[in-house]
Design a protein around this nucleic acid. Structure first.
Length: 555
RNA sequence: UGGGGUAUAGCCAAGUUGGUAAGGCAGCGGGUUUUGAUCCCGUCAUUCGCAGGUUCGAGUCCUGCUACCCCAGCCA
């Protein structure tokens, strides 16, 4: 798509510029480090675009590293979906995907080094005791009775821990830092815990697993990461990040910089809540088109380019934010407006019978695939005596603001003739089911010769050849801008976030899927084929509607 | 006075030796239009969380407030 050409500028890129200019670094190395415990979402896309974007623009490289230090929460299926999503977004990681678990041996060695330096100890205090001794935000903690265990004993105990001689929760390895630190994470943080669990990468090799704070910085150093970018909640952790790097024998000092995570209105972007939506069946799965996941957006019809553009437009700062949905929608509209071929589809059909059109005959009309781009060519559409039109495009009477079909008035059938409504037929409930009309045969591709003006244009599909289809229309998943701020976030789920309607599309529409991934159904919106589609019955997802000033005015 | 952060329009966000508030989204007004779309034109912060101070001049410097976010998992 037509992404904004200029490179983004943000405080992190300014740091990179400075580090390159000063000679601190000759080249830049970043990494995207997801934990494989769920699907990627639009918030991850921000981090992906930042990390891979910097690597690209500065001719450095970016690793994909699975931060897999907690085997009980992680699964191989997630590593596969994450790889797929990063690729789909258009990025290529450097070499093979890495895993924190690749470094378990080295990590263990560094833990032993810390013990040998008197900077780590095995603590047998019960978990609640550890918490108690940690103190509070305003009171310092107290030292564990195991804090001064001698080095040899600690080495032996850690070896026993590692050998599986202790149960989960019985003991842990703690860094000896400062129980009175104003940074809670510096109050002798646990760096290794016992978990008798199989790991998706290392199997049953280990029963002790390193904690995030100990693992991440070392993994960065091992991979030669120059700029380790993470979100704001890790700002305090940076002190521990730096402490570990300074106290082990490794000659690389990656630096951590924090930016604010993305918040999007009317949805949730926390893994915990996304998991709940899936597990409690509020959505059909991780790739439900209403989900803010990459998989959901993809199925909804969002393009990789539109998501990259979105990440560019929202920028990178340290400010708390909640971005409006309209920002995301503008990005996909900008993309599809240029790239999606046009077509016609009628979602809530009523029949239009053109009484003065010859019975049992049809003609083939030519329609441009894009009104502003001749290079997209033309297609043929069938026209005959009976066509489907949108129920909401007809009224028996209306004021002049209604630019559609009205009894005794004329309207243009898009790419076809001008017709005039003469009478209607209704069902028992009083709904119009058929409109009888006459057409002006001399208006194909031109205005009426007598100079009368026909203001309105409506879309249609030929009833004789139309392909029946299902359309899924989506609205915001939640009724409030910040569902995470509610007591029970699922209470604010929008019960009308999905509407299924039946209708018709032009014959042969789905014979070829456009490069853009979808179509613009003129006057309606952008749609793509859903994975539930069959040849016999196509199912379309509305990616986003057209901008609609008429809807705002109402009538 | 625990500590760490952030405050520029409805939303996102530039603004970096102090020199007189970019851009995008949304909105509003108008033009073009066989999509109430697109496109085009115009409009949208005497003011940068608040209050003082320094200065010829402050969003940028100083002082004092205020608001909001994060930290007390053997999660990441």
């Amino acid at each position: 798509m037509a992404e904004t050409e200029h490179r983004p500028t943000n405080f992190i890129r300014q740091i990179v510029d400075k580090d390159l200019a000063s000679g601190l670094h000759q080249s830049i190395k970043t990494r995207f480090p997801p934990e494989p415990n769920g699907f990627l979402h639009i918030g991850h896309a921000k981090s992906i675009c930042l990390n891979f974007g910097i690597a690209e623009d500065y001719e450095g490289s970016c690793n994909l590293r699975f931060d897999d230090t907690n085997p009980v929460k992680e699964d191989i299926s997630f590593v596969n979906s994450i790889k797929q999503d990063v690729h789909w977004l258009g990025f290529e990681w450097d070499g093979e995907a890495r895993y924190s678990s690749d470094y378990f041996d080295q990590l263990h060695g560094f833990a032993v080094e810390l013990i040998e330096k008197g900077l780590a100890y095995v603590d047998f205090s019960a978990q609640d005791k550890v918490r108690e001794m940690r103190g509070t935000l305003t009171e310092p903690g107290t030292n564990s009775p195991y804090r001064d265990t001698d080095i040899e004993t600690n080495k032996a105990e850690f070896a026993k821990m590692t050998a599986g001689e202790y149960g989960e929760g019985e003991c842990s390895l703690r860094a000896k830092i400062d129980m009175a630190s104003p940074f809670m994470c510096m109050r002798d943080p646990i760096i290794y815990r016992v978990k008798h669990a199989d790991h998706h990468q290392t199997g049953n090799k280990w029963c002790v697993y390193p904690m995030y704070d100990f693992t991440h910085c070392i993994s960065d150093a091992i991979e030669g990461i120059t700029h380790s970018l993470c979100t704001l909640e890790f700002q305090d952790n940076r002190r521990l990040y730096d402490w570990v790097i300074e106290n082990i024998s490794i000659d690389c000092t990656p630096r951590q910089y924090e930016f604010s995570r993305l918040n999007l209105e009317y949805t949730v972007l926390s893994k915990r809540r996304l998991i709940q939506l899936v597990e409690d069946g509020h959505v059909s799965g991780w790739d439900d088109p209403r989900m803010p996941t990459i998989a959901g957006l993809r199925r909804r019809g969002y393009t990789p380019g539109s998501i990259r553009e979105f990440c560019k437009r929202i920028g990178v700062t340290k400010m708390d934010n909640r971005v409006e949905m309209s920002m995301l929608e503008a990005c996909i509209r900008d993309d599809l407006n240029v790239n999606a071929p046009r077509a016609m589809a009628v979602l809530n059909p009523i029949k239009l019978v053109i009484e003065n059109y010859p019975q049992d005959s049809a003609e083939t009309l030519t329609a441009p695939n894009h009104p502003n781009d001749e290079s997209m060519g033309t297609r043929t559409i069938s026209f005959s005596r009976e066509v489907w039109i949108e129920a909401e495009d007809f009224r028996e009477s209306a004021n002049k603001k209604f630019k559609r079909l009205v009894l005794d008035k004329e309207v243009r059938l898009r790419n076809a003739y001008v017709v005039k409504a003469n009478r209607v037929e209704k069902d028992e409930a009083g709904n119009v089911t058929t409109v009888f009309a006459t057409y002006d045969a001399d208006t194909l591709g031109k205005d009426p010769a007598d100079g009368r003006k026909v203001k309105g244009v409506i879309h249609w599909v030929d009833a004789g050849s139309a392909q029946p289809a299902e359309f899924r229309l989506y609205d915001r998943l939640f009724n409030v801008p910040n569902p995470a701020g509610e007591d029970v976030f699922t209470d604010s789920i929008n019960p009308e976030s999905l509407k299924v309607v039946n209708g018709y599309v032009e014959a042969g529409l789905t014979d070829a899927i456009p490069e853009s991934g979808g179509w613009q159904f003129e006057r309606t919106g952008y749609f793509c084929l859903d994975t539930d589609s069959t040849t016999a019955r196509p199912v379309f997802n509305q990616t986003v509607g057209l901008r609609d000033t008429w809807a705002k005015i109402g009538d």
